[in-house]
Design a binder for these strands. Structure first.
Lengths: 347, 347
DNA sequence: CTGAAAGCGCTTACAG
DNA sequence: CTGAAAGCGCTTACAG
């Protein structure tokens, strides 16, 4: 710690270039500078003045100050995305979609919380204090909206379980589960198991419930004891599988559906280590279609969720809300698709 | 698109609560409200007034407006982190470190660019227009600073190759390479190969150069043709390895060092598929110590880079700069460590 | 087409 | 301890 007396070094930097400085140099008012700098000159500023202002802007290196501008307009040109988990290859594709749709008019800023944690109401209020033009919230908990009053334009991503009145773009994971069940049933499996996550996330509930329903409907049995669970971790999934496999085998189970690809990697690993033939002895499916699922051996049959599209649609909806437009559909649901690979099919 | 005539629905939300409203309710001036709301009341506001203001703040749900505050103070309470690649488990740990060190005084906001792209100078200028209290830049290109004038408090992360005058926290990947070389030399390897990345990133250059130097020093040979390269992708790495392996084998190579764990996964996969014994026939090492390296089979010997610490140290340095303090060390380098697992050692 | 002026919400010397 | 007032940098009716 330094004493307060010690003089701070004067910043070497040139002082901030303001619209007033540009106006002085160009010989116009700041109103004119503002018009030109914001691309609103058309029909409101003489071409002569516009040229003078542009020259001055270039000479001084003027950039409109976001803070001053936001205060005057009441809103910033920022879109804030709140996300609980960024350490996820899927998330990067969502971001790419958001960025693509947002274009250059709005600046995308991410607010992340510690692994799996949702932002506190305080955090969110502070974020709102930055006056974002809009808010994107990924995988929020059901209680998220209660803490928020007057959030402004807002679109939820991957948020099943919210009322139809809140704009959201969702992934049809239930449909993914059905596709998996149909695929296995078509291959002749009669007894199947399910390896769930342990976090109790809504999407996991939906994945499991929809699979069990579809399996029953298609005449496949999920015997008692054929439901296991493990955290999202290859090693833990392997261990959990090793524990239940003898019983599953005895019960005549020939296929297992995993809540995530990561769980499935654990099974593939354990099967390799102990010589279980995949898919001959046991067919395995994942969920999420992570990049590694394409190159693992065997390749992993999985459900592809359209991440890029999820981000894009959400941003498009948000853009409409920001523009004050009406949304034809408050809730959009995106289809998932089945990727068949070696883990379920010998081809 | 809607016509401009159409009336926009009046926002249902209560209007923004301002300091003036709080002042009215409490019967004090906005100056007093500001002092209390910012925790600067101590010794400057009577306890009676402080209590009145606190009550009013609670009643109205007042939150200091970030934009107004930033404009008045000349700087926001935001720290912006610019990062080129978030789809990386390593990055999540870096963020966790940053958040831990930053505490609650500053709001961390991430600005990400499309995969592997650095932010344009324009983007960065717009970011600076938000008047962040400080800037954290992860893995910038050497030219990054040239485009920036007067960036304010700034700390670089994982940025080898910048002058000693710019504050940075770096990872000692060269040391990691040496550890790998020593480990292999100690195990008696005489002829070793290197599987590089193809992106030409600075860190890859350093990894390779340092390994080759250490290998030579320790009396290990890297024969001509024992340098291969592949993109950071399991499948592509497997293919690249399959192509060179016959020659490597003929040349008597008994160990291969990979630029990333992902490359090593490709080799493990190909080895499994074609029956190459790891580590008996070929020892394999990765770099980065990704989570999966602990649970793969065999486990992957790798270099652990301290991500959490990287984030934490960088944020600590930035905090000092923001406080106007002097940095004892402008450049901090963090040690990496060797994780020995089954891919190099039979135990 | 143009500029003077008000106002966005806050903070901070300043005078009392 | 307190409040009136200036000022942060910009945008936008408004009057001309």
């Amino acid at each position: 710690m330094h004493s307060t007396q010690e003089p701070r070094p004067t910043p070497v930097s040139r002082r901030r270039v303001t619209a007033a400085m540009v106006a002085d140099l160009a010989g116009v008012s700041t109103a004119t500078v503002s018009l030109v700098a914001n691309g609103k000159a058309e029909g409101r500023v003489s071409t002569a003045n516009e040229a003078k202002v542009r020259a001055a802007i270039r000479e001084l290196g003027y950039v409109v100050d976001g803070i001053g501008s936001s205060l005057a307009r009441g809103v910033s040109n920022t879109v804030i995305m709140i996300a609980p988990d960024i350490s996820n290859p899927f998330f990067a594709t969502v971001i790419a979609g958001v960025r693509a749709a947002l274009g250059s008019q709005f600046q995308l800023l991410l607010s992340v919380t510690d692994a799996g944690q949702l932002p506190s109401a305080d955090d969110t209020r502070r974020l709102l204090g930055l006056r974002p033009a809009g808010l994107l919230v990924d995988a929020p908990e059901p209680s998220f909206l209660e803490e928020l009053s007057a959030p402004g334009p807002l679109v939820l991503l991957d948020a099943p379980g919210f009322g139809p009145e809140v704009p959201a773009v969702n992934l049809d994971v239930a449909q993914g589960s059905r596709l998996l069940a149909e695929h296995l049933a078509a291959a002749g499996h009669k007894k199947v198991a399910y390896l769930d996550g342990t976090t109790g996330t809504t999407t996991f509930e939906v994945r499991r419930t929809a699979f069990l329903a579809a399996a029953a409907e298609l005449g496949m049995e999920v015997p008692a004891g054929a439901l296991a669970a493990a955290a999202i971790n290859v090693g833990l999934a392997a261990t959990a599988f090793a524990e239940v496999w003898p019983r599953w085998k005895r019960d005549g189970i020939t296929a297992v559906v995993c809540a995530t690809d990561t769980h499935a990697y654990g099974i593939l690993q354990e099967a390799r280590a102990t010589g279980i033939s995949i898919p001959g002895e046991l067919a395995v499916t994942g969920f999420d279609n992570l990049p590694y699922s394409m190159t693992s051996s065997p390749g992993l049959t999985s459900i592809n969720l359209p991440g890029e599209l999820l981000g894009r649609r959400a941003a498009e909806q948000l853009l409409k809300l920001i523009a004050g437009e009406h949304l034809e559909t408050q809730q959009v649901t995106l289809e998932s698709s089945l990727m068949v690979r070696g883990s379920t099919s010998d081809i």
